[in-house]
Design a protein around this nucleic acid. Structure first.
Length: 518
RNA sequence: GCCGUCGUAGCUCAGUUGGUUAGAGCGUCUGACUGUGGCUCAGAAGGCCAUAGGUUCGAAUCCUAUCGACGGUACCA
């Protein structure tokens, strides 16, 4: 045991019963909504071959690019692109300890699962974009990222709750994804007014940028990275960063991209129109008025217009889903519509500042992900709720309370009576009432009731040998007692009000009554 | 990762220009109340002042490094 003390890894957490309860509720309520739309519940392993996870290949044995990974302790064959085993000059199968990684999201494993199922078929040339099967699933569970910096609400192990549709290029699936997110968040208990779904299309961004001379993947990516910050640093901020660079409030120098003034102005002018939220209709109008003669832009606009129609047809008005032309999201990943949900709830931090948590869901269309694994383009789209961040938000904003209801606590006076205690608890449980016997070592009654109090027990039962012989049980209404304790003056009187002696065979009924379950 | 601020009891924090024995509130425990939650009262436990070096007659206080927390920035599948 040399070299370590008992503590958890940075960015990882122990989850207490209260938070577990909240998290489970989020997952259950949203999951139900997903099912209403036809998504089926799947799980995949936490570990995957690093190569299958996509673009982040680990650098030797080290954790690289934010992914936890290690070498598989057993050797396995190395494969060629056609699926056959790689052989050396002696015709022996080449073996290797493959890189294994912990999943960093649930989408990459989905792509692997889908591709694995269809791999043979694709080798035989029987799979095409047109006959790729439709697959809809939802999934939740922990994902792992080796984050360099841990902000509040940002962890290295956290839950996502995904739903995806694989096998359709129809942007109706994207429109639907926005509806699903909106429905799910409402089901979780967020008020309509407290969040907004924001939608954009990467084709529009990309088309606009290439129209003003920013083509090439790298140039586009670096510009998009700056645009992504617009809600944080504003038009002036991005103008500076696209050009000469700027100094931030802490005095740190942020180098600019050094674009020509003409280009910077074009970008600034474009986004200036969309600083304020507008209706979907007028956003579309404003985009059309740019008159960008670019194929990609036009394609993106057609998709956006269709999504607008579909949302309207389904009754999702402006207050629920907006178009925000500056939404960027993951680079080198999303290919068309992208969306995220911004929470408008606020909380007060320790310094008394009012703050927002911001984005709690994200998603979009990724038409290239399966292609990396199968060599055949299979369009897909989906989104994810950041479960832990959402829980954090619900707690911080006071939207959720964590107080859990306790059990009926059966206090212990006498080991001889343990059989009776067990019997009582069994009776309560079969009546559907959570019950628990006090097993602590310190048996002072004060201690026992103190425990019940701390566990938020509504009722406790007191049964000693004298009562047992008389065939009675003392029942104390702790919940009522707590209420009355504010005004308590005479302790004996208080005791009389909250506690009563009942006949043993009326016990369960009495407790039901106290719990208001009758 | 880079820049900045901060690390004192389980928690929230005092702690004088470097000076003897480091404090408070809350919480915990004990008792008044030996079989009863709250309030009140009396008492107790609890600190290598983050860690390791250095400066000094003397360090919680000054310097350096490391670790950790927070804020900004970068990144974000």
């Amino acid at each position: 045991m040399n070299g370590m003390i008992p503590k958890k890894i940075k960015g990882f957490r122990d989850i207490d019963p209260e938070l577990n309860e909240l998290r489970q509720q989020v997952v259950e309520k949203a999951g139900k909504v997903y099912e209403l739309y036809g998504f089926r519940h799947w799980d995949t392993p936490v570990l995957e071959y690093a190569e299958n996870l996509g673009k982040y290949l680990p650098d030797k044995e080290t954790v690289a690019e934010g992914v936890y990974s290690f070498r598989n302790p057993e050797t396995e064959p190395v494969y060629k692109n056609d699926g056959s085993e790689l052989r050396d000059e002696n015709d022996l199968v080449v073996m290797d300890n493959h890189h294994i990684a912990m999943r960093y999201d649930l989408t990459a494993p989905l792509a692997r699962m889908y591709a694995e199922e269809l791999f043979i078929q694709s080798l035989k040339g029987q799979l095409t974009t047109n006959n790729a099967p439709l697959f809809r699933r939802y999934q939740y569970g922990p994902v792992y990222r080796f984050e360099a910096k841990l902000d509040p609400g940002r962890f290295r192990e956290f839950w996502q709750l995904d739903f995806d549709t694989v096998g359709t290029a129809d942007v109706a699936a994207d429109a639907e994804a926005c509806m699903v997110l909106s429905d799910a968040l409402e089901a979780i208990g967020l008020e309509k007014k407290s969040f907004v779904v924001r939608l954009n299309n990467r084709k529009i961004l990309s088309g606009f940028l290439s129209g003003i001379g920013i083509a090439g993947e790298e140039d586009e990516a670096s510009v998009l990275r700056v645009i992504d910050k617009i809600d944080k640093i504003g038009i002036d901020g991005i103008t500076a960063e696209l050009g000469k660079g700027r100094k931030d409030s802490s005095g740190a120098v942020i180098p600019g991209l050094g674009l020509e003034n003409k280009t910077v102005n074009a970008i600034a002018n474009y986004f200036e129109r969309f600083v304020e939220d507008k209706s979907r209709e007028s956003t579309i109008e404003a985009l059309f008025s740019l008159n960008a003669k670019n194929e990609k832009f036009t394609e993106g606009m057609a998709e956006l217009t269709r999504i607008d129609e579909l949302l309207r047809a389904s009754g999702y008005d402006e207050e629920k889903v907006l178009f925000s032309p500056s939404i960027v999201r993951g680079l080198g990943y999303y290919t068309g519509p992208v969306y995220e949900v911004e929470s408008l709830l606020t909380f007060t931090d320790r310094k008394g500042n009012t703050r927002r948590v911001g984005s709690i869901c994200g998603g979009g269309r990724y038409d290239g992900l399966v292609e990396r694994l199968l060599g055949i383009k299979v369009p897909a789209t989906g989104a994810s709720i950041g479960v832990d961040r959402l829980c954090e938000l619900l707690l911080l904003s006071g939207e959720a309370t964590l107080q859990q209801k306790g059990t009926v606590l059966i206090t212990v006076f006498d080991d001889e009576l343990m059989g009776e205690y067990q019997k009582i608890s069994a009776e309560l449980r079969s009546a559907g009432i959570p019950a628990e016997i006090y097993y602590g070592a310190q048996r002072g009654l004060k201690k026992q009731i103190g425990y019940a109090d701390k566990m938020n027990s509504p009722v406790c039962i007191l049964l000693g040998s004298d009562e047992f012989e008389k065939g009675v049980v003392t029942v104390r209404n702790l919940a009522l007692g707590k209420e009355l304790s504010a005004t308590i003056e005479n302790k004996d009187e208080w005791k009389r009000k909250v506690q009563k002696e009942v006949s043993r065979n009326e016990l369960v009924e009495t407790i039901k009554e106290m719990l208001g379950r009758k």
